[in-house]
Design a protein around this nucleic acid. Structure first.
Lengths: 159, 159
DNA sequence: ATTCTTGCAAATGATTTGCATGTAA
DNA sequence: TTACATGCAAATCATTTGCAAGAAT
């Protein structure tokens, strides 16, 4: 499982840069969110942060995540199945793939999809500020020849 | 935008075809939903249906709409801003445009967007069953007052 | 008579808010 | 000391469910 992108760039500084006081609970939340590719829900963030910070409240987690979103550090994504908000630390343009079986959400490299709005038509009628794309389906698990297939989807290959 | 596909095919029959008893409240709901392009929420459906059917309850509206979705007559779309479910009578493949100012959701002809998954890569890893695309932005050329299409074209018999 | 349908109210699940208290600048 | 941060409980919002009563078959 790939770890922190910037162990060198302190979270403290990233928060300060956008005017957020780097309190201990906030750092704990930030640290988890920026080190996972799993698009966690607030509930999931709480469960994880609780391990090192047992007193953290769900309200604080929600409020903190919302604050991060407002400051542009995080993005919200709707979980279509549970109707919950998921938080995405990847703020670069990208698309999503949702596994219909597990509900898992993966990032897709934008190069995997070529989207060309027919600007001759669309551009006259609409000014587009964001393109949101989610593919749904099943992840095919390749079985290397001769190896027993473990269905344990533990590896996030993206990032 | 295109209206109900089959003004000639009575709603009664469409419901019966999928095994739904065409009761009066259900016909009223169906009649509204299939004659608007506004992607209404359950609350909006209720407000409209109430006009001709004052006793209808919100629960029945929700349950009926869910039933229609289960039978494949309707599609659910998430309203990103209000977090509510919107109902889309257009079951053919298409994309959506959401006006950031008004929150209005419009159907986009699939021809307005060219999407080409890089199947050489994607197809090995993912089996895609659905492509969900929503563009966000502003509508430049406003058409007439596009609040709600008249839902009264219920020439389809009721009662 | 048995099986659906409906409306109401209560339950649920996700998220937000009010408030009293604690902490930091 | 004045402003923020936190936890708790209560409030909200959208949606679902339990149930009793009525209608359809």
């Amino acid at each position: 499982m790939s770890k922190a992108q910037h162990p060198s760039v302190p979270l403290r500084q990233r928060l300060r840069e956008v005017g957020i006081q780097p309190s201990a609970p906030r750092l704990a939340i930030a640290s988890y969110v920026w080190n996972t590719t799993s698009h966690p829900t607030a509930e999931e963030v709480k469960e994880e942060v609780e391990k090192t910070f047992p007193t953290v409240s769900l309200a604080t987690v929600y409020n903190t995540l919302r604050l991060f979103v407002e400051k542009g550090l995080l993005r919200e994504v709707q979980d279509y199945h549970t109707r919950a908000i998921r938080y995405d630390c990847n703020t670069k343009p990208h698309f999503h793939f949702v596994d219909s079986e597990t509900g898992e959400m993966l990032d897709l490299d934008p190069k995997m999809l070529r989207i060309s709005p027919e600007m001759s038509v669309l551009g006259k009628e609409f000014q587009i500020t964001e393109i949101e794309v989610t593919l749904h389906g099943r992840r095919l698990r390749k079985v290397k020849n001769g190896h027993r297939a473990r269905a344990d989807s533990e590896s996030n290959e993206m990032n």
